[in-house]
Simulated assay, not measured.
Amino acid sequence: MTAQNQDIDHREASRLNWARMALDDGGVLLQRASVDAGFRSYWRTLGTGLSRIVMDSPPEHDDVRLWLRMRDLLESGGVRVPQVLARDVDAGFLLLEDLGGPTLAQVMTPDTADEWFDAAIEQLLRLQAIEPPAGMGEFGEALLQRDAGLFEEWFLRRHLGLELDCDDTDRLELVQRRLMDNALSQARVMTHRDYMPRNLMPVLPGPAVLDFQDCVRGPVAYDAISLFKDAFLSWPLERVDGWLARYHARARQSGLPVPALKTFQRDADWLGIQRHLKIMGIFSRLRYRDGKTKYLPDIPRFITYLEEVLPRYPELRALQELMDSRIKPALQTKAIA
């Protein structure tokens, strides 16, 4: 047995022993509840009592204290978050309420989307109304530059095998700079950064918000466009525009610092483009660095998102031209191969 396998076996035994101790039930078993893109994992208890969730955050990779601090902050603002029933922060184990199996992404239908998005908007407005604490991370220049680098390094170079010439590089940098300047110019609020149906649980009152540990002070339009232009679930553009307008009206009524609707629409569209490029880079990195293959099949979703919105903005024409001349042909070649 390798040292790595020994470590895995030891972690599994520690997780199970801790769950049995926390529940005072020596017969409890654990079943994988969900797979995370990072190091954190979730396990559902099986036994005679109420089902619970064990969150396993290996301390060498993930400090559970950060998750707990953010959970408490969001709850203080009225956001529906998982309840913590027991904890061992040094070992990286938490016992949580079980919010069920399917996420909002798995239960939403075209007929129920309006109702669920209204509820998700309500939770988002509560989150955005929370004053970001001193020292909170900033969705600023450094983060935006890192995001831009993900697209070029992992999607263009590693996945597509493209090396841009000087002209293409200059055009891409110009677009990235315009997207960054737009993000930096927006009013700042508490920002989840992954506020999408996959991270929302369909419980009432709710939906409950998950994966919030990386909240930052960021642009006001970011979470709204993330909600409606999801990485794993697509909707017709006219419905997305309608939901953005609905969010905008409620945000203004709540006193959040959103600009006029026309400006907000552009801000949201441009943040969406920035986010789509970043996620294409992240999904490529998950495949080639981490060996996680299930994310790349969603790449065409982002190409569609870009093709829907880029024609609205002549200022970003260079990205459309790059897609037409280099990116889409390379994707087609890769698909045929």
Rank of each mutant, 00 (worst) to 15 (best):
D168C: 07
N182A: 06
T169A: 13
G140I: 02
L174K: 03
I121M: 14
A113Q: 02
C166K: 15
G135C: 06
E131A: 13
L125I: 14
L172C: 00
I130V: 04
M136C: 13
T112H: 02
E122H: 06
G140F: 04
E115G: 13
F117N: 03
L179P: 04
L125M: 05
R126F: 06
D111L: 15
E115M: 08
G161Y: 10
A148F: 01
E153G: 01
A142R: 08
E163N: 12
E122W: 03
F139W: 03
L160I: 12
A120K: 08
L143W: 08
L144I: 07
I130W: 11
T169Q: 10
L162Q: 03
V175E: 05
E153V: 15
E153M: 11
W116K: 12
G161D: 09
L179C: 05
Q145H: 07
Q128T: 03
E122T: 06
Q123F: 02
R171Y: 00
A142L: 05
L174Q: 11
R158K: 15
M108V: 10
L127Q: 10
P133Q: 12
D165C: 10
L125G: 01
Q145T: 11
M180T: 15
L162I: 00
A129E: 06
R146K: 00
D111P: 04
A120R: 05
L144H: 13
G161V: 14
E173L: 03
Q128M: 05
N182W: 05
A142F: 02
R178F: 07
R126A: 04
D167S: 10
Q145G: 09
V175S: 10
L179M: 11
G161S: 14
E152L: 14
D170A: 12
A134M: 03
M136Y: 14
D168G: 14
Q145K: 14
R146L: 03
G149H: 01
E138L: 15
W154D: 00
N182T: 02
E115P: 08
G135T: 14
D168L: 11
E173H: 10
T169K: 12
L124Q: 02
E138D: 05
L156D: 06
M180N: 11
E115I: 06
D170S: 10
P132S: 03
G137P: 01
G149R: 00
L124P: 00
H159D: 10
C166G: 14
A120S: 01
Q128K: 09
F117W: 01
D181I: 12
L164K: 13
M136W: 06
F139D: 01
P133E: 13
G137D: 01
L174A: 12
E138Q: 12
C166R: 15
T169R: 11
R177D: 13
N182Q: 08
D114G: 07
L127S: 11
A113E: 00
E163P: 04
D111Q: 14
E152G: 10
L179V: 07
R171Q: 07
A120L: 06
Q145V: 13
I121F: 13
W116E: 07
L172M: 07
D165F: 08
T112S: 07
L150V: 04
R178V: 00
E122Y: 01
F139A: 01
M180D: 09
A129F: 11
G137W: 02
I121Q: 11
R146P: 01
Q123N: 08
E138Y: 13
T109G: 07
L144F: 02
Q123L: 09
P133M: 11
M108W: 06
R158D: 10
R126T: 06
